[in-house]
Design a protein around this nucleic acid. Structure first.
Lengths: 232, 232
DNA sequence: GCTGTTTGCTGCAGTGCTGCCGGGAAGCCC
DNA sequence: GGGCTTCCCGGCAGCACTGCAGCAAACAGC
């Protein structure tokens, strides 16, 4: 993370959304737009953004409820955005699980500063930073791009390694095929591609993980894959 | 990691400081006051507060510099507080390492909400790691998406697991079919769908819960379902 | 008691998802 | 270019999961 600097912007006013999007992109963020409140949760799962900016005045779903429902599925920072005269109270918003609350019209640089503060705080102790990741007998050494299983080196192909690292860095979270695909390749996921499945299959084989009853990489039916941190 | 609820309040206006102190104490925080900017760093080290509220208009030391110097010695959240017409800019403050920035005069409950949001975020044990939920013999492990009953793993389908988690996470509350449906599926509940009933039935079977006299998942006639936390 | 409504649960059929093989293309190193 | 590895992708087999219908039982109100 910080590996992915993707921000999910939930905003129904297209003009405003585009403005914010352009501004954030000019500042080296990637931005995904979502207009429909009902699709936010699914989008959050599929894209796994680093942060969500949530406008409360959405058609389709009440923003507060949305925020609350989002929490179990999204652990990262949520920044609420709302008009000054909104009946939705700042205090309430924060209590419903938002991490920050900015009143519209927001000065772009204020918004940017607050986004940066949230990301800095949340992703500061990023395990991805070179340090070795240890999960019981499994040890991943990003500095050497090397993986050890019970002390023995496991030879992984380039994509296999990338995939494993992506999973391990967010152990305990379900990662969608779409997210994994985008993470490894620089092209669009068409929703049908089975490449990830094949890589996972290889990985399991090399890590001695039984797909019928996996202890490391679990398949979440209809959702994606999950790396299990707990060593045993 | 200070599991305490001590807040270090840095403020030179005694009257205001006392007001804030009283208010926070009334809300179950402990508050330590510090008026002198030069002593803040030492105080932060000595007291190891959970959070620092920092007024920028201090005699003795410029607030921004202070914030910057504080950072290496204090890892917890810092909330900046300043007058609206201050020349110290919000953006600058956040860039200097503050985690939040509130403009005076601050409504007490807003301040409180923001303090709580910061603490919640910072002191939840590693954001990526969810704790296991324990209910007597039943143990739900979100990090591995695994459910244990008396030590034995219970194999649940994807939706069964989601449903159980939704219920367990709000144990003791009646959850309507509509809520559960929306929580699991991302589509509208038509008011007639019996899917939830069937899932509940499966769950009860797998959890050895007798529907005639359920000890885990109780049916609330006409309203929904209720997860009972108390172990049997 | 009776009635209409709500719930429990099973069985089945269909579908959509996953695992992974195997051929061939594409990259890489000499 | 040759030999090697890695990767892509079509495709098939298998089955987990879903949704539905249907009926019995429980319930609330009268």
């Amino acid at each position: 993370m910080s590996q992915n600097s993707l921000i999910l912007l939930v905003e129904d006013d297209r003009r405003l959304a585009q403005l914010v999007k352009d501004f954030l992109e000019a500042n080296d963020f990637q931005v995904a737009l979502e207009e429909n409140g009902n699709r936010v949760i699914r989008q959050a799962q599929n894209l796994n953004p680093a942060l969500i900016v949530l406008d409360l005045m959405l058609p389709g779903k009440d923003g507060l409820t949305l925020c609350k429902e989002l929490r179990p599925n999204f652990k990262g920072p949520i920044l609420m955005l709302t008009a000054r005269d909104s009946d939705v109270d700042q205090v309430l918003g924060l209590e419903y699980g938002a991490d920050d609350y900015v009143i519209k019209p927001a000065e772009p640089r204020v918004l940017l500063a607050r986004i940066r503060a949230l990301l800095r705080r949340y992703y500061q102790n990023d395990p991805r930073e070179q340090e070795a990741l240890n999960f019981g007998e499994l040890c991943i050494q990003p500095s050497a791009r090397k993986v050890l299983l019970a002390g023995q080196e496991v030879i992984l192909s380039s994509h296999e390694y990338d995939l494993l690292l992506a999973l391990a860095a967010q152990a305990g979270q379900i990662l969608s095929r779409e997210f994994l695909f985008n993470h490894i390749y620089n092209r669009e996921y068409d929703g049908l591609d089975r490449t990830i499945d094949v890589r996972i299959s290889q990985l399991r084989k090399k890590l001695n993980d039984n797909p019928e009853n996996p202890t490391r990489i679990k398949t979440i039916w209809g959702k994606g894959y999950l790396f299990i941190a707990d060593a045993w």
